[in-house]
Amino acid sequence: MSSARNKMAQELATEQSQTIKIPLAPIIAAWLIPGGGHLWQRRWGRGALLLLSIATLFVAGVAMQGRLFKLAPANLVETLGFLSDLCSGLLFIALKFTGYDPGELGAPMADYGTKFILVAGLLNVLCILDAYDIAIGKKN
């Protein structure tokens, strides 16, 4: 009786250790480059389309002089905006390194630009989750 219980416990532990295994490489690739998780897993067409879409939105946002959110723990909205921007991965990091700062919202389309940059990051979260689903075999 106890041996059967031990066997069941072992099987459960094995199953759990298998399900907990997180595929880090595609997730990191997907965060750094929009569509990168799909490209990593040889989903070339989907990866290229996602990269093109999100990069277009991000670049359009910058062209419209949208602003980047800053990390400000005292301001929840600003911090959430920063986290969303950060989800664009290398696009955001590269832009930060260039010292991009459009200043106050002067241009008429700048508010649109800010939202474009923000949404590019949020859409990349969807790409990361999709890449994760593919990596664990939940999706093709």
Binding site: L50, S53, I54, A60, L123, L126, C127, D130
Partner: peptide, 27 residues
């Protein structure tokens, strides 16, 4: 550079629809 609200809204719709469709459906 995008100067019209309509163009911006169309670009936003295009990109968002594409990402939703690619990540949300199987075939």
């Amino acid at each position: 550079m995008i100067q019209s609200h309509l163009t911006a809204a169309l670009l936003f719709s295009l990109v968002t629809s594409a990402v939703f469709a690619i990540t949300g459906k199987e075939t």
